[in-house]
């Protein structure tokens, strides 16, 4: 099993993974300080643009990814729209109280979640975990016992999936019937989770023992099979956000869509 969702390589795939992670974290923190819905909307467009053009995914999969994301946008925005504080009432029915302020705040919160999703999915779709962990060891000096352990853990996922199937078939072939309701739910959970967890822990323990038996050590000058370096793509990545986000900011200040500059309740 391959641990990447790569369809077509784009320049995003060639960026140094640690660098990409840091830039994305900086962008993420930036979003937390945006309270103006106009800037948020343009920011969103910049991220969406990158996802649609450079993620290297076929159109069908892009749509498949966007459906749950849109649903998440709605479930994030609705509570704030319905139950947020505000003074200019648009609609009121029982507990639901939609106001102008709460509506825009809800949309703002939803957009923020969408941007986080966009950044996360761009990262997940364009980064090979193996290269990410090699880069973390080489550029960010993460101790090798953490990086290799995580990689080994990821490699166990296909075995876990296979095991899950085995347990399912074993129960099916024996005609196990599950009870309904909360108790039945707990029973199902227990029947799957205990064997899965115990086998996974045993396997992890064996892998660790084997690694140590083969002299896995943490020497300072260890050599790496993959050398992860920097390239012009890294600069391009920063320039993309620098230029387009500045433009996004400028446009939202000069030509705002709404007169609201701060969605927080005063």
């Amino acid at each position: 099993m391959q641990f990447d969702f790569i369809h077509k390589e784009t320049w995003l795939h060639k960026i140094n993974p640690s660098f990409k992670l840091i830039v994305i974290l900086v962008l993420f923190i930036m979003v937390l300080f945006i309270h103006n819905i106009n800037i948020m909307m343009n920011y969103m467009v910049v991220i969406l643009f990158m996802f649609l053009l450079f993620s290297g995914q076929p159109a069908k999969r892009v749509i498949l990814i966007l459906i749950p994301v849109l649903f998440m946008f709605i479930t994030t925005a609705i509570p704030m729209i319905f139950f947020g504080k505000g003074d200019t009432t648009w609609f009121g029915w029982g507990l639901i109280h939609i106001t102008e302020e709460s509506f825009f705040r809800g949309i703002h919160v939803g957009l923020r979640a969408l941007i986080f999703t966009g950044l996360g999915i761009i990262f997940a779709l364009t980064t090979r975990p193996v290269f990410l962990f090699y880069s973390l060891m080489q550029q960010l000096k993460i101790p090798s016992k953490y990086a290799y352990s995580f990689l080994a853990g990821l490699r166990l996922i296909p075995i876990m999936i296979e095991e899950f199937q085995t347990i399912r078939y074993a129960m099916k072939v024996r005609g196990v019937q599950h009870k309904r309701g909360m108790k039945g739910f707990y029973e199902v959970l227990r029947k799957y989770s205990i064997p899965m967890l115990s086998q996974s822990i045993r396997r992890a323990h064996r892998v660790a023992v084997a690694m140590e038996a083969k002299r896995f050590s943490q020497v300072k000058n260890r050599t790496y099979y993959y050398k992860i370096t920097f390239s012009w793509n890294d600069i391009m990545f920063v320039l993309y956000f620098l230029i387009l986000l500045s433009a996004a900011y400028f446009i939202s200040v000069q030509y705002p869509y709404f007169a609201i500059t701060d969605v927080r309740y005063k």
């Binding site: 016992k145 352990s149 853990g153 876990m160 996974s200 992890a204 323990h205 892998v207 660790a208 023992v209």
Partner: peptide, 28 residues
């Protein structure tokens, strides 16, 4: 933490990482 502890922790975490993926549609 020794290598064994770290590896076992990560494997437990990855099991729950998968559980989180299954939990996401339920939560939504």
């Amino acid at each position: 933490l020794k290598l064994t502890d770290i590896l076992v922790t990560f494997v437990i975490a990855i099991v729950f990482g998968i559980v989180y993926q299954l939990w996401t549609p339920f939560y939504e």
